[in-house]
Design a protein around this nucleic acid. Structure first.
Lengths: 248, 248
DNA sequence: GTAAAATATACCAATTCTGAACCAAAACAC
DNA sequence: GTGTTTTGGTTCAGAATTGGTATATTTTAC
């Protein structure tokens, strides 16, 4: 499987992460972090081949040497294996912590949406109230990157997760953020990946992105009720898309 | 990409994020304090590279010399390491392993209530829809035991947690149940137990138990809207009790 | 007024990034 | 099989970035 991830520089953990500013925002280490995160969160799975170094370089808008430096470090960490003439392959057997491991097996897609229905509207309410100007700037960046990812499903999935996590961050509640991160980790796992392939057509991606932008506008205007309604619509759409794909 | 970190993720929503760019406090020592706080509170984590001195200077609207003076002091404190040609890196190792322990330290009582406001109403909705007869019987037993515990604060706290967990069980959603268990775990920690001592008078216990029973009745009658309203009242009461105890 | 602090500017040295070329191994097309 | 294409592996010189240092001027504090 050829997995595409679109570029960019811009990170966190890490992140993460104000401009007091971002850490590791330049260079090979930033790229290493991004790729590692993509691998450990399940955007790539064991055996997937990464893009060729030359394409990664173009995608990250950096030199091939820089990409190579990042990949070399990932190889030393044992996260990837590289073979001349063949490519760079993910070598990472995902092992979730116990409680989540169990969950991942026993949770149906609808139950996941259900949990999001429980948490996200209230989080959105808090976000609309508490988001700082800086939060909004971060979110703006993510939206632009989402728009830019076109029909690249993997890039969209990763960024969509980051977007919703950033939303949770705006709520200024570490426990709720923690809930969100759990949701994201489950979302990025195997059975969901398959689902994603079914559902995410370019048209759907565009539709989701339109909702992201509307949500951002509502947050920026401190329109609490509006923002909550939009996130409900967003989840409703995700739910109906899911049911549609499931029954087809 | 520049990772933007929202600063006050767990701190009180007071000055921290405002101070970051506040023009009010000039001087190297002020900048040093801000950076140190950013590091020790986890905005930057171990190994992260700070922005280049020149960019920090611009960001703080100050001269590079001033930034350097602040960084030098941080270096003397051992909080950062600087390498010519490379950058300034955070050197701060603190305990991080148990994510929940982490939360327990950084979560304010109000933030916990906030999280419950996010999750419990929807869970109650699902519970009202999905609860089986067997669930209701279990809940009935818990209510009886709650009634029986009189003014025993510890017993009440424990059973109250079980009651809410049973409620979550009725929702038939393992992820939401997991969220609840996390909430309960935090509730049972030291600082919360102390809080309980303040709040839980026999009168309050009786009031909570009355709400438990009303909630049970609504569930038994499949009165979804009613059950949701009762849990909201329940949380609202818990919140105002908390605020009351806090201000006294 | 004086001294300390902050600013502004220029240059140096260490490190990293870039851009390019070429090689070797694997995959592919025929 | 043969030849072509793709892909990682290697090397190198020069540009760009970044902390380190020095000096002079301006502002602030007392």
């Amino acid at each position: 499987m050829r997995v595409e991830i679109s570029f960019p520089m811009n990170a966190k953990p890490d992140s993460s992460s104000v401009e007091l500013h971002g850490a590791a925002s330049h260079g090979a280490s930033a790229i290493k972090s991004k790729l590692r995160r993509a691998i450990t969160t399940g955007v790539y799975t064991h055996g997937d081949r990464l893009l060729p170094e030359r394409e990664l370089a173009e995608s990250f808008k950096t030199a091939r040497n820089t990409i190579r430096s990042a990949l070399q470090q990932l190889e030393e960490e044992g996260l990837v294996v590289r073979r001349a003439g063949s490519g760079t392959f993910v070598n990472y057997i995902d092992k979730l912590p116990d409680p989540l491991m169990d969950l991942n097996d026993s949770l149906s897609p609808l139950q996941l949406i259900e949990a999001r229905f429980a948490v996200e509207p209230y989080v959105t309410r808090l976000a609309a109230i508490n988001a700082t100007q800086h939060d909004l700037e971060n979110m703006q960046v993510l939206i632009n990157r989402l728009d830019a990812c076109g029909d690249d499903k993997d890039a969209f999935t990763l960024l969509d997760g980051e977007f919703h996590e950033q939303l949770a961050r705006c709520a200024r509640n570490p426990l709720l953020l923690n809930f969100f991160q759990q949701i994201n980790r489950i979302r990025s796992h195997a059975q969901w990946r398959a689902m994603k392939e079914e559902i995410l057509t370019p048209v759907q991606i565009a539709a989701y992105n339109a909702q992201h932008r509307k949500l951002f506008d509502a947050l920026a205007q401190r329109n609490v009720a509006g923002a909550v309604q939009i996130i409900r619509d967003h989840l409703e759409k995700a739910k109906s898309d899911l049911v549609g794909a499931d029954s087809s």
